[in-house]
């Protein structure tokens, strides 16, 4: 089946089908959210920017959340050995990501002539690292559990 969205879809047919469901569910939630906002806006004056931003966030967070919890990201992790190796890989990937993020955040701070607040910098880097690791870890754990049951 050909569609302009095909380029966003994974090669594997099960993953493709699940992703299509997630996108559709996200789109329906977005429409419902916008209808509610439309009605609320009649009584309370809401900022258009906030509503639009919240709409995008609802759509993206829903799809991202469903993807992570579906346990289909790490399709080949089924044994304890593979799982432990994947956790090690995840730790080193997160470390590299945090280092790169810190460098770019510093460069951005310097080039935009804004003083780098070290508390803010440390807090931001740690938060980004923890959130990134946590999301990946949940996805890995879910995938491992699902794959183990399928062996």
């Amino acid at each position: 089946m050909k569609s302009w969205i095909s380029f966003l879809m994974p090669e594997d047919e099960y993953k493709e089908k699940k992703m299509l469901y997630f996108f559709s569910e996200g789109a329906i939630l977005l429409v419902l959210f916008l209808v509610v906002m439309f009605l609320v806006n009649k009584f309370i004056d809401l900022s258009t920017g906030v509503i639009l931003f919240a709409g995008i966030a609802v759509f993206l967070f829903y799809i991202f959340g469903r993807y992570i919890l579906s346990g289909m990201e790490y399709t080949d992790i089924a044994t304890e050995q593979e799982y432990k190796r994947a956790v090690r890989g995840l730790k080193s990937r997160t470390t590299s990501f945090v280092v790169l993020f810190a460098i770019f955040y510093l460069i951005y701070g310097i080039t935009s002539n804004s003083l780098v607040n070290w508390y803010e910098f440390t807090g931001m880097v740690i938060s980004v690292g923890v959130v990134s690791f946590l999301f990946d870890f949940i996805s890995l754990k879910k995938s491992y559990k699902k794959n183990k049951e399928l062996l």
């Binding site: 090669e11 594997d12 047919e13 099960y14 993953k15 289909m72 399709t75 080949d76 089924a78 995938s143 699902k146 794959n147 049951e149 399928l150 062996l151």
Partner: peptide
């Protein structure tokens, strides 16, 4: 040309290919 997970799901009858 699919993932191991997909084969596992088919074998368990949890996915209709």
């Amino acid at each position: 040309g699919v993932t191991r997970q997909t084969i596992g799901l088919i074998e368990k009858g949890e996915y209709n290919p």
